[in-house]
Amino acid sequence: MTDVVINKNRRAERAAVNAVRSLLEDQDQIVQEIDGGNDHGEDLYVTFTEQGHRTGDTIAVQVKGGRSFKAKGGFRVPVGDHAQFWLKSNLTVVCVVQDTDTRNLYWANATQQLRERTRGGSGPKSILVREGDRLDAESLTHFIRILKNYIAETAELHRFLTKISGHAFDVTDYLSYFTNEEGEQLIFQQCRGEAHAWLLHSDMDWCPEPISFDALHFGRPDLEEKHGPHGGLFSSLVTVGNVILDHAEGFWLAGCFMASRWYRQLPPIRSGRGEVSASDAD
């Protein structure tokens, strides 16, 4: 029998996630915990509410706890291999650290730091979380206002994608944009509450194609003879429904499906009076 090695920092990280979740839910914000969050780099999705209604503003949160993140002036959260996703994600990614001695929470906008400090393909190795940016019940309104303003600024992406495709997008849609090596442009669109997503491709005259994760296949035996001999995950041939993609497009699309999974659900809003269904809250 092989002993299972337990991460020594697991207890501190679990306590930190619980603290963030409790703080936000106590103020009637919608919190969705991500399975395997430590593996993907984000632990929570948070949708802001106002007077019992969703505002349409959603962020992803990575939560850290433990003394190892202490640094001069605050804390440092390693970026690791999440840099490109945090940099290009349509969801703003926020890092929250809990001081294990005081139990206080502190936060930083990881997406903003990466976008401002990445030059020539090289960005910061860690996110600075300052001691002055405390997250508690008193500062939560300020925290939400800052992030809502930042999200509004990034809505420029919606305008850009509408301009190039001629397709109207809702401000609450999850959108992602990709340009392949031949200059062809692709847009991934996930509408909130829809079981499927949409793929818009410049080479297909921007005609929206309904797609699902189950229809995404790396390797097609019936097409390999024409498109190449390599099958399985690392096949150069990728299909989603009737659309044929290259390898890079396939991995981009897989990442889009993973990141937008929560958008395909409509969780209830928590309030002091109990749970209110999403349909009732609209």
Rank of each mutant, 00 (worst) to 15 (best):
V276K: 05
N180Q: 07
H53F: 13
A15W: 09
D39M: 11
R103A: 13
T55R: 00
N149V: 10
T100K: 13
V94L: 13
K125T: 09
F178P: 08
V4D: 05
D136W: 04
N38T: 14
T141V: 14
R273W: 10
S279M: 09
P124L: 14
N104M: 07
K226N: 06
G241S: 10
F48C: 04
G255P: 03
T179Q: 13
V79P: 01
Y45C: 06
Q29K: 10
G73K: 07
Y263K: 07
R11H: 12
I187Y: 00
V17Q: 01
R130Q: 14
G193K: 02
G255A: 10
F85H: 08
V276C: 06
N104T: 07
A110P: 04
T111R: 06
L91Y: 13
K148D: 08
K148F: 06
L44S: 02
I30N: 00
H53K: 15
H227G: 00
Q27V: 10
L161E: 00
Q190P: 03
V17S: 01
F85K: 06
K226M: 11
N18Y: 08
R119T: 07
T162I: 10
S126R: 04
N7S: 11
D81S: 15
A215S: 15
D3R: 15
G250Q: 01
K125M: 08
K163M: 12
R145H: 11
R21H: 06
L157P: 00
V46K: 01
F188V: 13
D26C: 13
R273E: 14
Q29M: 15
L199T: 07
L237A: 02
D43Q: 06
R54A: 08
P78Y: 10
E181K: 11
R192F: 09
K64H: 11
R14A: 13
Q51Y: 11
G193T: 02
E184L: 04
A12W: 09
T239E: 14
T49W: 03
Y150Q: 14
I146K: 10
D35G: 10
T141K: 12
H227Y: 14
D81M: 12
V20L: 09
H201K: 12
E13F: 06
R54V: 12
A168M: 12
K125Y: 03
I244L: 12
G166C: 11
R21Q: 14
L233M: 12
N149A: 13
G37Q: 05
V79C: 05
Y174I: 06
I211V: 14
V63E: 01
Q84P: 03
H40T: 14
G121V: 00
P229N: 09
I127E: 05
C191H: 11
E209F: 09
W262R: 02
L157G: 00
Q98M: 15
L114P: 00
N104H: 10
